[in-house]
Amino acid sequence: MRLRLLLPVLVLLAAFHAATETLVSTAAPNVAIRGRVELRQAPGDLTRRPNVSDVAMPRGHDPTDRRRSVVYLETAPRAAFEQREDVRVKLDQRNEAFVPHVLAIVAGTTVDFPNNDKTYHNVFSLSPTKPFDLGRYAAGHSKSIRFDRPGIVRVFCDIHSHMSAFILVFAHRHFTVTDEEGRYRLDNVPPGTYTVVAWNESAATESRRVVVGESGDVEANFLLGRR
């Protein structure tokens, strides 16, 4: 009976020891996975629904950069899951567009949604990962949401049909958003074998298996979209 009680404690102690060891060992090398994500077909800008009730030309809005992709490790070292800092990031509303259009965060991050536009906005999401509705609020005001569960959260404005954004919430810190030319770099990846995944809203995800050694960057390129 006493042994049955002791067993879980021993398992927890062993796990703690292993995790501590991992933290020490992963801090040493600075190996990166880098490359480029290209899209076979560049996704078009988000357009407003044709509203025949409008009595004027619709107002212009900032174009949405839908070429940005997110690259992440499908599996990651345990230590990458244990860094839970209180992080705040911003998803702005400017000229009837969410900026940035794609935001990648680690679970536990709080996202501020400031309204820096001239008009009302109503930010909401029906995604199972984090359903929320911030209600209508005017320019100069901001509301925030903390994202604790990993997953994809699609964000909309209830008033402007062409406004949308993606928030990708990760359980670990090995992810990045590509730059305007599709380049990415995942830093501080400990040695090991990983599956690297590239995600873009307009295409199916693709994955690559890569082996990271003690030194030297690893390159993994992606070409997303239908042939």
């Binding site: 995790a19 040493a28 599996t75 199972p128 997953g151 994809i152 359980a171 090995h174 090991g192 995800t205």
Partner: peptide, 18 residues
């Protein structure tokens, strides 16, 4: 080579739900 403990990034990452 250091020991790497590998865990899934997401228990259930709903890619299709994107």
């Amino acid at each position: 080579m250091c020991r790497v403990f590998v865990l899934l990034a997401f228990a259930a990452f709903p890619l299709a739900a994107a």
